[in-house]
Simulated scan of single mutants.
Amino acid sequence: MNIQLIRNATLVIQYAGKKFLVDPFLAEQGVYPPFSPSLRDDQMNPLVGLPVPVKDIIDVDAVIVTHLHLDHYDDAAKQLLPKDIKMFVQNEEDAVQVKQDGFVNVEVLQENTLFEGIQLIKTKGEHGRGEILQRTGQVCGIVLKHPEEKNLYIVGDTVWYSAVQEVIDTHQPQVIVVNGGDNQFLEGGSLVMGKEDIYEVYQAAPQAPILSVHMEAVNHWALSRAELKSYATEKGMSDRLLVPEDGEAYTF
């Protein structure tokens, strides 16, 4: 398997001979308004440009959209992706919207979805804690399995909670991708994992390398790559925690 971070939560994953695009956020730098009220309310999103040409990003076999927030599925993605490409979404509500956007090959992920011999397992997520969940809505993660590959867990936009532990216990992922920017609004707390959440993942999966993505790409991030790396050193988890730059890829 090869995992390339494009930007934010956008990944290109080569797995068991197939190529997946996860959470396509494909606009040019600075074309969307800031997420508000939050940090850096004067900065337009995305904060950074794409590190590779769009044509290379969208040259895939299938797209996985964990939820429909702008920084995971944007107007540029709707325009640039071929309308007949395979689109996997989390539920029927999202499927209706994606079909309205013109896509004709849309499938709702289940716990036993199969695509070209690859098992796609939808997992639960909580996009924050407490009352903010009424605003953030439903999200998912996904586990990929194939006999010739390591089990891959893409955690998605979630904080650490019991369901993440359950996925790790049940599926024994050998590679884990977390969304680790600790993104926040001014009130409501963390929307995705902060450094303490990532440490929980590290402790729960004592063998798996962990990639932290979803960092420094949209205005409401609260955890920098530098701070996470410093915390990883302090906690002794630098041996398995990878903090890729945009465009960087790893093979497992």
Rank of each mutant, 00 (worst) to 15 (best):
I3E: 07
I3D: 01
Q4S: 08
A9N: 08
V12H: 06
I13R: 04
A16N: 06
V22I: 14
Q29V: 10
Q29C: 06
V31T: 09
S38K: 07
N45T: 08
L47D: 07
L47C: 08
V48S: 13
P53H: 08
K55I: 08
I57G: 12
D61A: 07
V63G: 07
V65M: 10
T66P: 12
D71L: 11
K83Y: 14
M87G: 04
M87R: 11
M87Y: 10
E93H: 12
V96L: 13
Q100M: 14
G102N: 06
V104Y: 12
E107A: 09
V108A: 13
Q110Y: 06
G117P: 09
T123S: 07
L133Q: 03
Q134I: 12
Q134P: 04
R135I: 15
I142A: 10
I142Q: 09
V143N: 08
V143R: 08
K145Y: 03
K150E: 11
I154V: 09
I154L: 09
D157Q: 10
W160I: 01
V164Y: 02
Q165N: 13
I168R: 06
T170F: 14
V177L: 02
N183P: 08
N183C: 11
S190T: 09
K195D: 01
K195V: 01
Y199T: 08
Y202W: 12
Q207E: 10
Q207I: 12
P209W: 05
I210N: 01
V218K: 03
A222I: 00
A222Q: 14
L223M: 02
S224T: 02
R225E: 04
R225N: 09
A232Q: 05
T233P: 14
T233N: 15
R240A: 11
V243N: 00
G247T: 05
T251I: 14
